[in-house]
Write a protein that binds this DNA or RNA. Structure first.
Lengths: 102, 102
DNA sequence: CGTGTAAGGAATTCTGACACG
DNA sequence: CGTGTAAGGAATTCTGACACG
């Protein structure tokens, strides 16, 4: 569906650090806390996508607001759930409309 | 104008090699022949963009067709020139149309 | 000309741990 | 809990050169 360059995991942690302004320590820590999921090269080097970079910036903002990592994780899960519900409803309505037409 | 993730120089040569299937040797050589222009980290490590990756695949195809590096370079310059001419003409027409309206 | 390779060194990244708060 | 740092090692990248054709 939406797959694009934005989702390709190709950026090493050093560049991500530059792009986000976050220390490599923080970036690795947010992975430990299940907030980002980089891929790895055969050798074990982390690779991030631009989407990950965006997410990290977002995480950094929430951390600045005093939010804790587990809260951020929980919040994202909630939003994901909301999104799912919305999509399910939308699909339901579309189905209903489709039935009425035939 | 068009700036996007596609133009950001963030990919190291190892990943570019995987993405394109080209050896690192070839990728460095095409730079030597002025066909691609990666940026560098402070330390000197090359960084490529997705656009560079596309360009490299294109170069690889032309090499397979027996074209030489200098021919590829020349060809790209010609196409660039063509494009400039086209844009200049377009701008000229727009200008003319604009004048007529007032 | 285009590309592989071995060579030696430097830059980058990794993990686990200690520290502080 | 979140993050800095020194430590030792491994993976990645760099350059200049020789080789072959």
């Amino acid at each position: 569906m939406s797959s694009s360059y934005k989702d390709k995991k190709v950026i090493t942690i050093g560049v991500v650090s530059e792009l986000t302004g976050l220390s490599e320590r923080k970036i690795r820590y947010y992975e430990e806390r299940k907030l980002v999921y980089p891929e790895r090269t055969k050798g074990g080097t982390r690779k991030y996508s631009f989407l990950d970079v965006e997410r990290l910036v977002d995480i950094a903002n929430k951390m600045e607001d005093g939010m804790q990592t587990f809260e951020i994780r929980r919040m994202e899960q909630k939003q994901l759930k909301k999104k799912e519900v919305r999509e399910r409803m939308l699909r339901g309505q579309l189905n209903a409309a489709f039935k009425m037409r035939k």
